[in-house]
């Protein structure tokens, strides 16, 4: 019985590897070989990576800038919003929570189209990266609110706040000194999602981008469509090199925050 389970698990793991890890490795290798169609015999090279960097460095910077700005906005909007939802005893609080998921449920293309219809005529705004930022914030906000709200619900926040108030703390002091520090775990979990989603976001961004404002995934699509396969693959390689460390850092911060909190 145990043996059977072991083999089933092993099989499943291998199967997952086959579809998740192998393609990534193939892609990375393709970005490093001199000629993909000839194969590894043609030798390894960094030429493609350099070429991508020369062509698309600005898309990478834009993506990072967008992700970080998006993170700032979702924290600044999401934490107070989650707190509001927590506190509100009204019936519409539940409805609000559901409504927050709408941008996830609606196809990104539709969200982008709506944004274009509403604000596309404002030239300066339309052409700046802030326009894309708004799309990203819309899309990622629920991923910040949900984990923060969950942590708030589990943390006996009301009692902590009452204790702080009895000790003389006004609303601002309570919010910054008690509420926020006690939902750091949720904020970090949300941050991980927000940054990941913002960096990889394609649908909305593709609709909203201008030739001067291309993000990494949009550039990637571009290069796949118009360049050698090796260049596209080298691009993937850079993408991974940018995002993996970022995600590892956020994960690690989450683990540290949790360790200092729970027994």
């Amino acid at each position: 019985m145990n043996r059977l389970r072991f083999y089933l698990q092993l099989g499943f793991t291998l199967w997952v590897c086959l579809f998740m890890i192998v393609p990534v490795i193939m892609s990375v290798m393709a970005g490093l070989t001199t000629n993909y169609f000839v194969g590894l015999e043609s030798g390894l090279t960094l030429r493609w990576v350099q070429e991508v960097w020369a062509l698309y460095a600005d898309t990478i910077w834009l993506s990072i800038r967008l992700a970080l700005a998006c993170l700032c906005f979702t924290v600044l909007l999401g934490v107070p919003a989650a707190y509001g939802l927590l506190r509100s005893k009204r019936r519409w609080a539940n409805a609000m929570e559901e409504a927050l998921l709408l941008p996830v449920a609606i196809p990104g293309l539709a969200t982008a189209l709506a944004l274009l219809l509403a604000y596309g005529h404002m030239r300066g705004f339309r052409e700046s990266w802030l326009f894309i930022l708004i799309g990203h914030v819309l899309f990622t906000l629920p991923f910040m609110i949900r984990p923060v709200l969950a942590v708030m619900r589990g943390a006996r926040l009301a009692e902590l706040e009452e204790a702080a108030a009895s000790l003389g703390a006004g609303f601002r002091q309570r919010f910054l000194g008690v509420v926020v520090p006690n939902c750091v775990g949720g904020i970090l979990a949300g941050a991980l999602m927000v940054v990941t989603l913002s960096i990889g976001e394609f649908n909305i961004t593709w609709m909203l981008h201008t030739p001067l404002n291309k993000t990494l995934p949009v550039g990637l699509a571009d290069s796949y469509a118009s360049m050698r396969l090796e260049i596209g693959s080298a691009y993937t390689l850079l993408f991974l090199a940018m995002t993996l460390p970022l995600l590892v850092v956020i994960q690690w911060a989450g683990r540290v925050a949790n360790r200092s909190r729970t027994p």
């Binding site: 902590l160 009452e162 108030a165 009895s166």
Partner: peptide, 19 residues
């Protein structure tokens, strides 16, 4: 409001700040 009243409170579940 409570923060202006100068009262000390002790709760059943302690309500200590875990952070």
């Amino acid at each position: 409001p409570i923060e202006k009243r100068d009262v000390g409170m002790v709760f059943q579940h302690y309500a200590l700040f875990p952070n």
